[in-house]
Write a protein that binds this DNA or RNA. Structure first.
Lengths: 341, 341
DNA sequence: ATTATTTATGCAAACGTTTGCATAAAGTTA
DNA sequence: TAACTTTATGCAAACGTTTGCATAAATAAT
């Protein structure tokens, strides 16, 4: 690599001090005089000294590093979570390394391995769509590395978890459509192998049931990845039904937005003929016409809460006995896409 | 940290071999017998051995790690670049750590410091909006750490750079509008302190000039961050003009999309009354009605090209004498938002 | 001036893994 | 069987920084 990297020893030689004094001076240790500290600081800057964190981490057996694994960095929800994590972690002296699994368990396993070998002090994970088996995360437990799951969490894994109430949020969203007078409500669902999307489907069904609206399986459209394309495709199928729906609850904003485009192109009035509710409050939900009603799922706060818990776990050296699942409150943001009354 | 982490020495003790043999066996060294390799592999798995990459990196003075600094991970362009980087880097045995500056030079400096101290082997950077001074990157040069800039690149910094032809792309986009019969073309520009957005503005102007259309400063709207909100605000101002434009070229797809929403809400027909062209081919450009004409800026290929160059620089131990600036070709994707003829 | 206390620094070992060189053991050839 | 060659492993040192303990030097108290 570099033959010109300045070490503590170089500084020590230049100043006629020992490396241990240099180390303590740079760390601001009380046992070193202010005069020496200033002298060291100056020479360090003069020579362009960059401390070798690898060597220090090796000696201290600490990296002050948190690993974050998200399914896709591009998704607004996850990028907000990351922001929440970063802001709190940096303020507590930890740095954050971000990885994306791209919803592939193979990638997730690879990332887990990298993080284990790099001695991160804890990890925050939203598991991939494909993840059914958690042995790659169990290794962190074995190594004494704290792990926090958020959003998509494994049910049979003892760890702290931060979630939102997917069931209750979907219930609220669907009830809102019912309150607006919708009688035939369709649902664009996420992959039913993923718990959070299953819960949203259950909440949708529960709302229908509790308001004595009949459940019609022909009004439910499952997607693989909740993409724009899938939303458009299902919206087309919906309006071809003998009796099209007058309301639509979508498991994310992407599918809601593309459904709206399809409906409008087919000359359906939104919300007069079909009311639409999305999920996750993506920035674009405030832009498209009509502005989209959606569930605000508190991504930033989720990141903060996960980080707070993780840092507590890192600095509390005992193995935790109890784990908690924190459920954050969501709220429905009502905009024009669903407002009939 | 963990008192239960298995080391090479533990394996050595268990197998009655030396740590150096264990190390060589795990690394698949030819001097170690297959029998010994298998025995070591088995015991390593049995005991849940995770190698200490920190210790190895320290000894080897190599991290096999590439640092990536982007302005915002959420922006589709950058997340595509990251994908291009990740795919190639992983296949070459490097891992990638991602950081976002959030368009803050202070954050960027902090990240640079972290990366320097962590002995990354190279970095790929898209500089923040605020970056005018490059001393924090010059330190990488001094330390012999290769640096590649992409997209937003400093003009007075000797390094390899990967860019697109912003001028030529904007020229092409504006010409397309002219070919479609537009006579009064507006432009939503990015922050003019950022070279790429300045170049796009220049390309817009050059197209007008070469087709003998007069340049009207009232048809140019500068934004700070090219957000949806800014796009909407400027679109409103545009249609309040005494003589509204009949064409619009936007420096990104977000502002193009929000302008379209505003125009449609005000009952303007797209593209009949106002034709719109965006930039960057965000996924949503294929979704909104009408589908958006846009410049495809080859983000994934940009990531790949940067990584290829970087790895070459890392593995070629001589200090490079010549630097190149690679310019990737963009193409115009014509969709309904601009198609009059 | 002497003794006691405080301040400031240095020595040496540790951290887990890797690698050059040495050498013991095993296999092959004369 | 002896000599030569090849295979397989071990020893020891290195990597840059940190930290417990020791001690020299400076300062304060008697």
């Amino acid at each position: 690599m570099s033959n010109s990297r300045i070490t503590l020893k170089d500084l020590a030689r230049e100043l006629g001090l020992s490396p241990s004094t240099i180390s303590r001076a740079i760390a601001g240790h009380p046992a070193i005089s202010e005069a020496t500290k200033n002298k060291v600081q100056q020479k360090a800057e003069e020579l362009g000294f960059a401390p070798n964190t690898i060597a220090a981490s090796f000696r201290k057996k600490r990296t002050y590093s948190i690993g974050v694994i998200v399914p896709k960095i591009e998704v607004h929800f996850h990028s907000l979570v990351i922001s929440g994590i970063e802001d709190l972690a940096y303020s507590k002296g930890y740095n954050v390394t971000i990885f994306q699994s791209k919803d592939s368990i193979d990638r997730e396993k690879e990332i887990a391995k990298i993080l284990q070998n790099r001695l991160v002090e804890g990890i925050i994970v939203c598991i991939s769509n494909e993840t059914k088996n958690y042995s790659h995360f169990k290794k962190f437990v074995k190594l004494g590395v704290p792990i926090i799951f958020y959003d998509r969490v494994p049910s049979d894994f003892k760890a702290n978890k931060i979630i939102i109430d997917d069931f209750g949020s979907a219930l609220r969203a669907t009830e809102h459509l019912i309150e607006q007078g919708c009688q035939r409500i369709a649902h664009i669902a996420g992959n039913q192998n993923t718990t959070i999307f299953k819960d949203r489907f259950e909440g949708y069904k529960a709302a229908l049931q509790s308001h004595k609206l009949s459940f019609d399986p022909n009004l439910v459209f499952e997607t693989k990845n909740l993409t724009y394309e899938e939303g458009a495709e299902h919206a087309k199928a919906m309006i071809e039904l003998q009796e099209p729906p007058d309301g639509l609850f979508c498991s994310n904003d992407y599918t809601a937005i593309s459904a709206i485009q399809v409906f409008q192109k087919a000359n359906y009035k939104i919300p007069e003929q079909i009311s639409v509710v999305g999920f996750s409050n993506y920035p674009i939900s405030r832009v498209i016409e009509p502005n989209l009603t959606t569930i605000n799922d508190r991504a930033f706060q989720m990141g903060e809460a996960a980080t707070k818990l993780l840092i507590r776990q890192i600095e509390d050296e005992d193995n935790p006995i109890d784990f908690e699942t924190i459920t954050l409150k969501t709220n429905l943001i009502v905009r024009e896409s669903s407002k009939r009354r």
